[in-house]
Design a protein around this nucleic acid. Sequence first.
DNA 1: CCCGAATGAGACACGCTCGTCTCACCCGGG
DNA 2: CCCGGGTGAGACGAGCGTGTCTCATTCGGG
Lengths: 183, 183
Amino acid sequence: MSLDRERVLSDVAEQLTRKPSSSMDEIARSAGISRATLHRQFAGRDSLVRALEELGLRRLTSAVEEARPEEGDPVEALRRVIAEAEPLAGFLAFLITENQLFEPGEVNAGWKRVDARVDALFRRGQECGVFRLDLTSAWLTEATYALITASAWAVQAGRVAARDSGPMATELLINGACRRSRP
Amino acid sequence: MSLDRERVLSDVAEQLTRKPSSSMDEIARSAGISRATLHRQFAGRDSLVRALEELGLRRLTSAVEEARPEEGDPVEALRRVIAEAEPLAGFLAFLITENQLFEPGEVNAGWKRVDARVDALFRRGQECGVFRLDLTSAWLTEATYALITASAWAVQAGRVAARDSGPMATELLINGACRRSRP
DNA sequence: CCCGAATGAGACACGCTCGTCTCACCCGGG
DNA sequence: CCCGGGTGAGACGAGCGTGTCTCATTCGGG
């Protein structure tokens, strides 16, 4: 069943987000299946991580999709993007550090596609005169990811309240990216 | 010689920053010594990581010290802090992810001390009416670290030019933290 | 009811890393 | 000159995670 595979993958994602160094046994238990079955569905740890990367990419893509970054006020669009992407923060952070190890130089083209989408949002805002021009859209994209993950991380560490973290990241980024009204 | 130990530690830091999953052998080679000698100076990998944490803390502390965060205009002080801390970004990022695994709940008190120093800078700026009040100083501190590391990361990934990364992180953070002139 | 597919449990060997130990070597001081 | 400390090289066993295999069990459909 592909449905089972999907559910297993979700559980694995959650487990590895919580403990990136989990062994295959821990991973299997967390999905409620045995190590043997896990191995039957995914050839090995590599295969599993690949599948997780694909899952993360799919989730982020649909999150950005749902945020409709090319519609309406760029600031509001950015708000939507952050709001949609925030729940994925922990999982994406895991993928980043994991891919760091894997990566021989080839990055899944899907990530570039999502990046391009966010990048375009910032460029649109710059052309509208809403966002600053001295900050590269590429950097703003990078900063967006960084602040989202930092937000999740700060919550986990108990440094900021869970309900404030999202809005704070949003506010800092928007305020930082917008041009001053008076030059 | 404690001098040797210091030099070895620096080399190890550089190696692990580049490749966090290095084996003890690779680590030793990178320091120009044999695995046996490495084991003679540091009981094991744990001991080594502890020493590295202490080194990172020392470096960050002296960086913040040199930035004199409690002197002069908060904005300028923040600029100095970022400028001083930026070269440490990669190394600190490694320590964060590594401590993530180690940490049973006890964090070296030294980190809290540095955090408190940066936190105080933001609070001072808020009391001066320069920084926004709706963003917690704790969050701004967290965001500072996040943007610094993101900056280093973006450079390594080739997404932004090395000479621009520092100023961009600074600008985004300062612009984001400052109150709008016109409410 | 029966049969086949899927699953769980466990055994097993392999590879990797680590920590320790031994031994030969070099090098500087007495 | 000799001698002791420090070093590099390598061997060795232990531990752990992994991948594969087997076997008994269970579950669902014919």
